[in-house]
């Protein structure tokens, strides 16, 4: 079994999906000979040929629209948007068509496409390269929004997303593309969509997060453990549709919840989780739900970005605040 990084696991899953299913096509900007700006499609052109690995003209709305057309014809398009900050021209196609085609035609035309995009800050990139606007997509009925947090999750969740019969926005936490190596078997086994993953068990406080923030959150749980506080860490993984049951079950046990995400506070996906806790888990809560998020500001450029992104310290402090309530 190979030890791979998250971006290598993405590459492995793409290759596996293409080898298993001739209807899987990969396309986007610079995904061919260049292998993608992060190398996630490295080697696919050589292995599968130019009819299945296509460099498109530089037009994100087009890339999304072509995927809708191919998907209606029974292909399984896996389109790459180079950075989430450039996904907005594709939003019209995703919201107006990809998410609706099955419903609009009562199942006659469907949209089994995956749109992959690296997202999140912390890589010292120029403006527009550090976006975390997953909540925009999670708001849209008919979509799935899936975010892996490790190499094994990237492999298993991407395979599941490609095999899923409906459109999936697959957001890859690029800050941890190469942060850790993990043994991942290239066995074609998918992980379940629409399900949270409990990364660490604990009985005192529930920490809910996704993507790259699992790193800081797991570190915070470790620090809390040193203080004798048992933190349960839940990786949401599929933001939409949301598996609220696992979060509620955990909060019933701990009575306290801290939600951590990189995106701005207001209207972030943490707001939905907090609202659902208020609706369905209020009587389990021993303390107000805490949110540790980016600020309601524009994502700063690289000199200030570390001040914007939730730190381990902020997460630990929020957990302590939650524990102050007797």
């Amino acid at each position: 079994m190979a030890e791979v990084t998250l971006v290598e696991a993405v590459n492995m899953a793409l290759a596996k999906a293409m080898a298993d299913d001739a209807e899987v096509l990969v396309f986007g900007e610079d995904v061919g000979l260049d292998g993608g700006v992060f190398r996630s499609t490295d080697g696919l052109l050589a292995r599968f040929g130019a009819a299945r690995v296509m460099d498109t003209p530089l037009a994100e709305g087009l890339i999304a629209g072509v995927a809708v057309g191919l998907a209606a014809q029974g292909f399984k398009p896996v389109a790459e948007i180079q950075f989430m900050g450039f996904i907005y021209p594709a939003l019209d196609q995703i919201v107006s068509h990809a998410s609706r085609m099955r419903n609009r035609t009562r199942g006659r035309l469907t949209c089994p496409m995956v749109m992959r995009a690296p997202f999140g800050g912390g890589i010292r990139a120029p403006e527009h390269h550090s976006e975390s606007t997953e909540a925009m997509f999670a708001h849209i009925p008919g979509l799935r929004v899936v975010i892996p947090s490790s190499p094994s999750h990237a492999y298993g969740l991407l395979l599941a997303s490609i095999r899923d019969p409906d459109p999936v926005i697959f957001l890859e936490p690029k800050r941890i593309y190469r942060a850790v190596r993990e043994e991942v078997a290239d066995d074609g086994r998918a992980l379940p969509l629409d399900s949270c993953f409990t990364l660490r068990e604990g009985g005192d406080v529930t920490l809910v997060t996704w993507g790259a923030m699992t790193m800081e959150t797991l570190a915070a749980a470790e620090t809390l453990a040193d203080e004798g506080i048992g933190a349960e860490v839940i990786d949401v993984a599929t933001l939409k549709p949301l598996d609220m049951d696992q979060i509620l079950t955990s909060v019933q046990k701990t009575g306290r919840c801290v939600i951590v995400h990189e995106a701005a506070l207001s209207g972030g996906w943490g707001a939905e989780i907090a609202a659902r806790l208020a609706e369905e888990g209020l009587l389990s809560l021993l303390a107000p739900v805490q949110r540790v998020t980016g600020y309601d500001t524009v994502m700063p450029l690289l000199r200030l970005e570390q001040w914007y992104m939730p730190s381990e310290g902020r997460i630990v402090a929020a957990a302590r605040r939650a524990l102050e309530y007797a």
């Binding site: 709305g61 087009l62 999304a64 629209g65 072509v66 995927a67 809708v68 057309g69 191919l70 998907a71 209606a72 014809q73 029974g74 292909f75 398009p77 019209d92 196609q93 107006s96 068509h97």
Partner: peptide, 12 residues
């Protein structure tokens, strides 16, 4: 917005 779909179908 249907024009990109048309190219996708034609590509198929």
């Amino acid at each position: 917005t249907q024009a990109p779909h048309a190219t996708g179908v034609a590509l198929a």
